[in-house]
Nucleic acid binder design. Structure first.
Lengths: 193, 193
DNA sequence: GCATATTGACTGAATCTTTAGTTAGAGGCG
DNA sequence: CGCCTCTAACTAAAGATTCAGTCAATATGC
């Protein structure tokens, strides 16, 4: 607990997953990245799967942290700004954000083949959709709930699609941000009807 | 060219990828699925990566085929109907469509970690965006080209996002179709401005 | 026509490589 | 000592890739 190589291993794992993917994570590469022997990995965690579980948990804790920083130099944001802010947080070229997006995409993709992952994923997605619908509702208080939810579903699904394109080098960051901003505009226009 | 085991291998690869994912594709399983020896895989394709590349091409050709069936009981479709039709074709519970969508999503996700796939993927994506932009242009002839492209980028990225959710069991097919239809409406409204 | 190269498609059985997981024990420290 | 943290060196098994050839068809010289 003193030197905490354990934490170093999890941080290294997040980096390696961002670079190689969940299925591309190699125990030896992880050990090197963490500056540790492979045997130590097995000392601290039962096996490879154990490392994956702990890393994903570690990553999602970290994600909650940066998503909920809602402050700004010029006073508090209005709902519209907060919505854009929330959505655009996914598109930043910071290692931590990239790591998170990558891991999330990996999870989502793996869930197609590993049904046991689906539970947590569905929960997290639902919560996310709900948050976005909520923000939309604050901007357009008269819009009916199901319409808000539908917009939120589209916005979040769009974000996942754009994110994959960004990470695979098919879409420059700035363009992804631009498309996201426009998407918000477009959906808000719809909610006027 | 006669017996075309080559084609059999690519068809088998699409099936195996849909079942196990790109990273779960094993040369031996592929050989068995195609009813050939593993050595033949290397005879027809340079290596594993070569098989992935060619399968991607194979899949996008196949998608073009089923995407471009433009007929209907009640005469020819107008551009708007054709657009919806094109986009909704991705959401059908037919083995071939499911297989295509799954494999496409897998290849897209793999491209994050395997840069060799990016070239082909980018090409196919660009062509797709262009097709959609074209259809949008036929519906709204006065809209400027960059705006059309942006709408097409959003619609296609949304489709990829929804498709992943559908395939991972997080989104019922009917709902995915509904959200897609609304997205078309929303984007078309925007193109009036 | 017909024996003789030549070639393309194909395979069984290695081999080479990678990778998760283990084991025996070293260093430090209370 | 006895416990904790850690490592070098290893094993077994899974996988990718190659090898050495078979077989049928097709071309070539006579």
């Amino acid at each position: 607990m003193a030197t905490d190589r354990r934490k170093a291993i999890l941080e290294a794992a997040a980096r390696v997953i961002a670079r190689r993917g969940v299925r591309g994570l190699r125990m030896e590469e992880l050990a090197t990245e963490a500056g540790v022997s492979t045997a130590l990995l097995y000392y601290h965690f039962k096996d490879r799967a154990g490392i994956l579980r702990n890393t994903l948990e570690f990553i999602s804790d970290r994600a909650d942290r940066y998503t909920s920083e809602e402050e700004c130099a010029d006073g508090p944001l209005d709902a519209r700004q907060e919505l854009e802010q929330t959505l655009l947080l996914e598109f930043q070229d910071l290692p931590e954000v990239r790591e998170n997006s990558t891991a999330w995409g990996e999870l989502r993709a793996s869930a197609i083949f590993e049904p046991e992952l689906r539970g947590d994923l569905a929960g997290a997605t639902l919560a996310w959709i709900h948050d976005v619908a909520d923000l939309l509702g604050r901007i357009r208080p008269t819009a009916p709930a199901p319409t808000l939810t539908a917009s939120a579903e589209r916005l979040t699904a769009l974000l996942e699609g754009l994110s994959t394109r960004w990470l695979s080098g098919a879409l420059p960051l700035a363009h992804a941000r631009e498309l996201t901003r426009e998407a918000v505009t477009v959906e808000l226009e719809r909610l006027n009807r």
